[in-house]
């Protein structure tokens, strides 16, 4: 049997478990992405309106701290509070994703030319109108590219969910490492890459749709 045939056999025997790992992976990653976008984007926008530099620095530092905690340590901290499985995995990944998303969104919002804001103000846009009609749409490409980059990270980090019993493609990869099975490692990695690429493409499309509406 050629390697390729063997690989086909592997798929035909194991496809249910592969697909369920994939499904778990996608669900975890999407939950994390949704939650962190919903939390971080408004926070970053709020921070751009904030005058107090100290508070901003503190927020960034908190987000930074989560990034520097070693994964295993963070997961160990989460277990007594949230147990094992889906919830703690999502929470831990959420904490990890805060910094890149916060930083990218904040930078995106700040990239809006002060002249454009001044023009909008001077033309009589109220604060809320200005945010939704001018600042957000202008910053959208930057904010979206931040979301896209972070989403790709999150897809890759989601393999860590396997460490805390939440499954996902990390399970397949780790099992492959322990069980001496290259097909598993390859498949887990490959599917994770495909998901990341697809998500990036989809978000790109979403960006276009929002931009033209």
């Amino acid at each position: 049997m050629t390697l390729f045939q063997e690989y086909i056999t592997y798929w035909s025997e194991d496809y249910t478990s592969i697909l369920s790992y994939m499904y778990e992976h996608i669900i975890i990653a999407l939950t994390v992405i949704t939650l962190s976008v919903l939390f971080t984007v408004p926070l970053a926008i709020f921070m751009t309106k904030m005058k107090n530099e100290l508070v901003k620095t503190i927020i960034f530092n908190i987000a930074n701290v989560f990034q520097t905690i070693p994964t295993i340590a963070l997961l160990a901290i989460v277990i007594p509070l949230l147990g094992i499985g889906f919830v703690p995995a999502v929470v831990a990944l959420f904490l990890y994703s805060l910094l890149p998303l916060l930083r990218n969104t904040y930078a995106g919002m700040n990239s809006v030319d002060s002249e454009i804001i001044e023009a909008a103000k001077g033309m009589g846009y109220g604060t809320v109108q200005r945010l939704f009609k001018i600042e957000l749409p202008v910053a959208l490409p930057y904010v979206m590219s931040g979301i896209r980059v972070s989403s790709v990270y999150i897809i890759s980090w989601t393999t860590l969910a396997a460490l805390i019993g939440a499954g996902g493609l990390g399970d397949l990869i780790l099992a492959g490492i322990g069980y001496n099975d290259t097909f598993m490692i390859f498949t887990g990695t490959f599917i994770a890459i495909i998901i990341a690429i697809l998500l990036d493409v989809i978000l790109g499309k979403v960006e276009k749709v929002i931009a033209y509406s």
Partner: peptide
């Protein structure tokens, strides 16, 4: 049955 890190 959940696979996970041994320490965890």
């Amino acid at each position: 049955a959940r696979g996970m890190d041994v320490a965890l």
